[in-house]
């Protein structure tokens, strides 16, 4: 058949984003670019509007009865006053400010929760915390999730760049009961650490903990304490239980 109208790479990317065929990393990349590239954003909007009519043909399916209660609880716990509420509200405000990027960050954080929650059984109580780490430009650079039951810390790079050659990003826990920063490990694009590096993983203490990332010589701080500049920080925020 006549293959006329070839698309530019950017238009093709926008079209495939709207169609839904991109991989997770390509989608995250487009989500990030949408915030600062109006041309790409309008190309995506064009394709979304073009394809919207297809949704008319989707049959409604009655949602689970308890779904709205869970949504309400999630919204309420992030807005009513309880311990740590100010942190959650702050996180929400930041998420709103990031606008398009909020989807990415929220999606990443949610995906981490999905990851740590996969093997969850109902028998053992699980406390989950998330942190969005940002730098001076107020853009999310890393997201972290802690699960007390899985005893794991997951960290994903979502916006920041990899450290310069010869340098490493090192993750620290600050606050809680111990005064000195505790090293949790060196970061890659996606890292997983045992949560016992945080100590006894007491939920009350986690709630007072901030994660910080410093730039260190390759292989990590030689002294056991941060030696380079702290480039990203974020407070741990408890995730309401289901």
């Amino acid at each position: 058949m006549a293959e006329i109208d070839e698309m530019s790479d950017e238009d093709g990317l926008a079209a495939e984003y709207a169609l839904g065929t991109l991989s997770a990393s390509e989608r995250a990349d487009v989500d990030r670019r949408l915030r600062r590239e109006p041309r790409l954003a309008s190309a995506v909007a064009y394709w979304e509007r073009r394809l919207d009519p297809l949704l008319d043909a989707v049959e409604p399916v009655a949602p689970p009865m308890d779904a709205f209660a869970a949504i309400k609880a999630q919204i309420a716990s992030s807005q009513t006053s309880r311990s740590g509420t100010a942190d959650v509200i702050d996180l929400q405000r930041r998420l709103r400010r990031w606008q398009g990027g909020a989807i990415t960050a929220a999606a990443m954080a949610a995906s981490l929760l999905l990851f740590v929650g996969v093997r969850e059984t109902t028998a053992i109580r699980d406390e989950k915390f998330v942190a969005v780490l940002e730098g001076d430009d107020r853009n999310p650079a890393f997201v972290a999730a802690v699960s007390t039951k899985d005893k794991s810390i997951m960290v994903l790079r979502v916006g920041g760049l990899a450290p310069a050659p010869g340098r490493s990003h090192e993750l620290w826990a600050v606050g809680g009961d111990s005064p000195a920063p505790r090293s949790l490990g060196l970061l890659s694009a996606a890292s997983r650490f045992p949560a016992d590096r945080l100590g006894d993983v007491d939920p009350a203490e986690l709630q007072r903990t901030t994660f910080a990332i410093s730039v260190e010589p390759e292989g990590g701080s030689p002294t056991g304490q941060p030696t380079g500049p702290v480039v990203f920080t974020g407070k741990l925020v408890p995730v309401p239980g289901k």
Binding site: E3, I4, D5, E6, M7, G12, A15, E16, L19, T21, W47, R50
Partner: peptide
Amino acid sequence: VKTVLRRSLALLRECL
């Protein structure tokens, strides 16, 4: 598949 998808979308746009 990538090429086919993009060509199909281009044709779709032209038609629409």
